[in-house]
Design a binder for these strands. Structure first.
Lengths: 344, 344
DNA sequence: GTGAAAGCGCTAACAC
DNA sequence: GTGTTAGCGCTTTCAC
């Protein structure tokens, strides 16, 4: 047993030589094919262990025509939202034997190229939010690569998973109206994402039902700092309630209010969206989304699509799927303390 | 221009045929080699664009002998800590042109196999915390794969990056002593991780310096629920101060105290570690760690190691590196409100 | 049951 | 400047 030469990974040829068999037999034995005798298998596995052999995945991927890896693309890294989705995705992908590649686009101009390059490394791809344009999505879909869109406006022929926005935003609005609030502000940019658009639409619809005029949205980034900055202006003349497009914005408002010694909910009600861990400790009324589940469903759908793809010889696949995951209103103190609360 | 046949990605051969050149020329043109005329390059790029050609990375990886991808292994998914590290890693890796594979071990028994398999897909690997044993680390290191350990006890010959625990824990303890606290409790399991061990050691050392006897640690998982559960017993007879191994535990204590109507810091002081976003809103005194930076440094070190590896023909590489990133005490309300505060 | 050999898609000598 | 061709490490027919 000669020692390992440090610095280079061993190949199937070395294992074959050491075990005294052919590379074909090594390949079979290591993958527990029943085309080898138990004896040979043991011999091969011993040799592989001695050499600390791990098959080079590029070689295998090329030979098998598949990567055994999926990718997920998300726009940005700020805040826990995307992290949760990615982790749900990883968990589900690992469960079906797929490695996971991640890509953050950071709103970079060359995002499209990076996504295209990623597409060449994986068997399936999940694309979140506003990372790349519809044209890129269509191009990739046209290659036949299984794709699923997350929290993003649908593209013809591509699977899409999102979370319920409009209806729950309506519930939230009703709840605030129940507190007696009438003058609202909305912090967030409906043009920036379909999620924010849905939340604003839900607010607007609920107000109109009550004969109230919806406020124009106040455009705002989805991070804490943007929320704090936007709030500095807004709180000069506080409305009854500030509905924020997500928790980070709401937490920013919280900080700005603290600085101005404006009391929440006494002087102004504030709500968020996402139910981040921090929301609980800021006593923020918000909407909980199944972020982990969002990622997990995406991974499972891709797995099935990949299976379909290899199963069929013709190009046909089943129709594009849609799914909207339910969200849930989480009432805490920030929306008001009036006894008129209906939701308990 | 005949239409694309949906369902299969195009290859370099098809591009070559369409452009009327050889595959070698396609390869060169697409990689902007200056061995092709501008004219040919344009022709090839046009053909590639028409076919929506993206090079298959497995083929390229096999030919180049490198994956252009790095991996990162982390134990678990609970809480924002690992997410931050991973995202810092991704960002830095992307900056040097590396894709990123993630793997969560979840304390699974077959973690070693999963990590070994990952090792076969990447040019370098970052391994966090208690994901796999030293034996696995040594095996992988022996293959010559560049490796970096994160927040983990060092292994001979392998690069390690960690954050400062003991000294800052001492500062934290001094601060608490300054508030007049004398009876302490420590929530966390020093045997579970070197980070926790370091934090406890810092506490113990600081107390001994003052002639006080350190409390035995109260073993506790690193998540919110574990903290809340542990606090239920602990708060029956509250000490002056509860020093928690991380923020999630401290936030759990916070919730338990709220339920029992025990006031923080009036009745008991509480501190955490990590400075999560939620810590700010729970007014938690804690220690900030550069989590993003931790990941980013790992990615940069790996990049350099990979460069060294291909540069040298002999097996030699420079000695194993160590780095300890600084941490910073963040004083908020949860540690006490006495006027004797020294740290501002 | 095992081996020989033909690729998988790409890069990089080496010719011309 | 461009084409030919030999691999990269592996899986998988196809013979034996």
């Amino acid at each position: 047993m000669k020692a390992l030469s440090k610095g280079k990974a061993s190949t199937i040829y070395e294992v074959a030589q050491r075990a005294g068999v052919s590379i074909a037999t090594v390949s079979r034995a290591l993958r527990d094919s029943d085309l080898v005798t138990a004896d040979t298998r043991a011999k091969v596995k011993a040799a592989a262990a001695e050499l600390r052999f791990t098959p080079n995945r590029s070689g295998r991927a090329l030979a098998e025509g598949r990567h055994a890896a999926n990718g997920i693309v998300f726009p940005d890294l700020v805040g826990p939202y995307y992290a949760e989705v990615v982790l749900g995705y990883e968990e589900a992908a690992a469960a079906v034997g797929s490695s996971v590649l991640i890509l953050a686009t950071h709103g970079r101009a060359d995002a499209a190229a990076a996504v295209q390059e990623l597409a060449g490394r994986v068997d399936g791809l999940a694309i979140m939010g506003q990372t790349v344009g519809d044209d890129v999505v269509r191009d990739i879909a046209a290659t036949g690569l299984p794709l699923v869109l997350l929290a993003r406006a649908p593209v013809a022929g591509v699977d899409t998973i999102s979370t319920r926005n409009q209806r729950t935003a309506g519930q939230l609005t009703e709840h605030l109206l129940g507190h007696g609030h009438r003058r609202f502000a909305f912090l967030g940019d409906p043009a920036g994402s379909p999620d924010v658009a849905g939340r604003y639409a839900g607010l607007a619809a609920a107000l109109r039902t009550r004969g109230l005029v919806p406020p124009p949205p106040v455009p705002c980034g989805l991070d804490l700092d943007s929320g704090e900055r936007a709030a500095r202006d807004l709180l000069a003349h506080p409305p009854d309630a500030v509905i924020c497009a997500n928790d980070e914005i709401a937490l920013g408002v919280h900080l700005a209010a603290e600085q101005r010694r404006i009391h929440i909910p006494g002087d102004v009600a504030v709500t968020g969206w996402d139910d981040l861990m921090a929301a609980r400790f800021a006593h923020l009324t918000t909407v909980a989304q199944p972020m982990r589940e969002l990622g997990a469903v995406a991974a499972r759908w891709l797995h099935r699509r990949i299976g379909e793809r290899t199963a069929r010889t013709d190009g046909r696949t089943s129709a594009a799927r849609r799914r909207v995951l339910p969200t849930r209103l989480v009432v805490r103190r920030s929306c008001g303390t009036h006894p008129s609360e209906v939701h308990k």
